[in-house]
């Protein structure tokens, strides 16, 4: 572990490990520097220019790309910086579909947070030439929506796709004012190589990428994804007796904050109206609803007749450790046979 570097940000002495950027060092010490394109899990690129700071003896530069140096004196806000930032934000606001009331990200939007902090000059915005925002909504994916009229081109989704997912199915396309995030051939996202992992949706700072049926959960519970063997930690949100959301548990070492399409979007089966809700017993060839007492009595009676090697249990890799323990204990201790197996080989 190398020595910590000491620098001064807005008069506060701050320590940070070598290689830390000024932005991260400041944020870690509760000094807010407005920023948009920087994300703590992704490579910094310095393209939004919002996190400009002044370092004594240098021209204004972006704090997200500048590593801390010993004795550095950093100013995060002065007249010049504020003016550049303001104009920058005003341009962004002007080119953004500002229909916040109808936006799924309302109140959780980083652009709102930034404009609140930076402050914008309404008169200047009104004097500017407002563009027509007419990108059609891309609703081709069943789980998320892409609204490019809200996109601020921070590139977080692009870097997420490249660095987290490794799929690289989206990138900046076109140039200048025409620039947009797109897929090969400028097609709807569903026709790309997108695997709907949703990593970009969770990281989008604005309302450009939002889950399709977003519902705020009443409460959330940390658990484990029910699908493959990765055993990803998920935080499942519930509301009104239904599972309504699933996000990665950032602290789970198995998935380190990531999820795939199934774990993030595929839990709807829990709410399915086709779920079994009562025991069924075959009567005259048909399965008919029965009470637990009835079912248990029938099973107890029947299984009593097949103890030993004429009985077998097929257990389940979908059930918990505790479930499986009880199943094999039952098979061995009650039914008197080792005929138990599950789908480990399938």
């Amino acid at each position: 572990m190398s020595e910590l570097i000491t620098l001064n940000i807005d008069g506060v002495e701050v320590k940070a490990a070598p290689g830390t950027t000024i932005l991260r060092a400041a944020l870690a010490n509760d000094i807010y520097i407005p920023h948009l394109c920087d994300h703590k899990e992704l490579t910094s690129v310095g393209i939004c220019r919002v996190c400009l700071v002044e370092i004594e003896g240098r021209r204004p530069t972006v704090s997200c790309m500048t590593p801390v140096e010993e004795g550095m004196v950093v100013t995060t806000s002065n007249e010049e910086l504020d003016q550049i930032r303001k104009v920058n934000m005003e341009l962004l606001v002007l080119n953004h579909d500002y229909d916040c009331q109808n936006c799924a990200k309302n109140s959780k939007c980083q652009l709102q947070e930034l404009t609140r902090y930076v402050g914008i000059d309404e008169n200047r915005i009104n004097a500017m030439r407002a563009p027509e925002l007419a990108s059609p909504l891309d609703d081709s994916n069943p789980y998320y929506l892409r609204d490019l009229n809200k996109c601020v081109l921070c590139g977080i989704c692009v870097r997420t796709c490249e660095e987290i997912q490794g799929d690289e199915c989206i990138d900046f396309t076109f140039r200048g004012i025409e620039t947009k995030i797109g897929v090969l051939g400028d097609k709807p996202i569903a026709e790309s190589t997108c695997v709907t992992c949703g990593e970009c949706v969770t990281r989008c700072p604005v309302g450009a990428l939002v889950p399709r049926h977003a519902v705020e959960p009443t409460y959330e519970v940390d658990t484990v994804c029910p699908f493959c063997g990765c055993g990803c930690g998920i935080t499942v949100g519930a509301r009104g007796g239904k599972v309504v959301s699933s996000v990665a548990d950032p602290d789970s070492p198995a998935n380190n904050g990531s999820l795939c399409v199934k774990g993030r979007f595929g839990l709807g089966f829990v709410n399915s109206p086709d779920r079994l809700t009562t025991p069924l017993i075959r009567k005259d060839g048909d399965l008919v609803e029965a009470s637990w007492e009835e079912a248990l009595a029938l099973i107890g009676d029947k299984l009593g007749q097949y103890k030993g090697e004429q009985f077998a249990t097929i257990a389940s890799a979908k059930c918990t450790v505790e479930d499986n323990y009880v199943m094999q204990k039952f098979t061995r201790a009650v039914m008197g046979t080792n005929n138990i197996d599950h789908c480990a080989r399938l």
Partner: peptide
């Protein structure tokens, strides 16, 4: 392993 608790089973 293919299923979420195949190891556990």
């Amino acid at each position: 392993r293919g299923q979420n608790n195949v190891q556990g089973a």
